[in-house]
């Protein structure tokens, strides 16, 4: 079943188009990663899906219908800033969420933690995110929307959180996760990559990377080469003793280096996921 259908949705703020004719689908049981740099339009899109912003144009369907207030019982949402009351304890936050959604509080989720009776503001970001995730899932939503869920947490907490997200999707929920951590892209079943308000790529992580190449430059004068490429506005990174150039064709790069008499061996190599994401964002 398709849980979210976004069709040609646009959102304009004054003269600025934050989201431009974007289409996205999320089916139950799958994790869709919404990837993009800051300002790509991810959060605006999420807010429109949740009904926090009205689209300027386009259509949004949740659970096959226009969004309604009743549907919100079927949605769990963890905003980027977590949406927890800092001056309430973890247990009190969970109790509030449970009461609003009309469900019993999950006795073993969060409240059995040693921090259950600590004020949220005193907890580490990792623990805060754990509480926010529990709060968003204790009513067993069929759609889980997570905006940058792992931002600022330790690798261990991040891994723990992704385990819980996977468990949730395996139980049948549709999960939409926005992130700008490229290394998390592999966690999603499908990716939707956004840049400057547009969808610039979509598919499985493998499909998004497939066919994308970078120019590998092997030279003894890597430092000079890096400087020359930079002056020509090319995005390049040092990898071992070679350079990997993300922007421009192999002929462009050869011409740039030749102009400065830098001898180098050039070849096209498959891009990594990181490089594909950076190239898409350019």
């Amino acid at each position: 079943m398709t849980t979210i259908v976004v069709r040609d949705v646009t959102r304009v703020f004054g003269e600025f188009t934050a989201v431009d004719r974007v289409s996205v689908e999320v089916r139950s049981g799958e994790i869709v990663g919404l990837l993009g740099a800051n300002g790509a339009g991810k959060t605006t899109l999420i807010k429109m899906i949740l009904g926090l912003l009205a689209p300027s144009a386009g259509q949004i369907r949740l659970f096959g219908e226009l969004p309604t207030r009743q549907q919100r019982r079927r949605i769990g949402y963890v905003p980027q800033n977590l949406g927890l009351y800092l001056d309430l304890t973890a247990a009190e936050n969970l109790e509030f969420h449970a009461e609003v959604f009309g469900v019993e509080r999950v006795p073993t989720a969060g409240t059995d933690q040693p921090f259950a009776h600590e004020l949220i503001r005193t907890l580490s970001l990792g623990d805060q995110r754990r509480v926010a995730f529990t709060a968003a899932t204790q009513h067993h939503p069929e759609l889980l929307v997570l905006d940058e869920p792992t931002s600022g947490v330790s690798p261990l907490s991040r891994s723990d959180l992704w385990d819980r997200i996977h468990e949730y999707a395996e139980a049948g929920a549709a999960v939409l996760v926005s992130t700008h951590h490229i290394d998390e892209a592999d966690q999603a079943d499908r990716l939707v990559v956004m840049a400057r308000g547009h969808v610039v790529a979509r598919g499985t992580p493998r499909e998004v990377v497939a066919g994308r190449t970078v120019v590998e430059v092997i030279t003894d004068r890597w430092n000079d080469a890096l400087e020359v490429l930079d002056t020509h506005g090319r995005r390049a990174a040092l990898a071992g003793r070679s350079l990997r150039v993300l922007s421009g064709s192999i002929d462009d790069v050869r011409r740039d280096l030749a102009a400065d008499h830098i001898a180098a061996e050039l070849r096209l190599v498959p891009a990594t996921l990181d490089e594909a994401m950076v190239a898409l964002s350019l």
Binding site: V9, G51, L52, L53, A54, P55, A57, G58, P67
Partner: peptide
């Protein structure tokens, strides 16, 4: 709490907060 619906239902149909 509840943003206005778009003026044109055929252009934007996210009926925010509709019953």
């Amino acid at each position: 709490l509840a943003p206005k619906h778009s003026a044109s239902p055929d252009r934007a149909t996210a009926a925010v907060g509709a019953e």
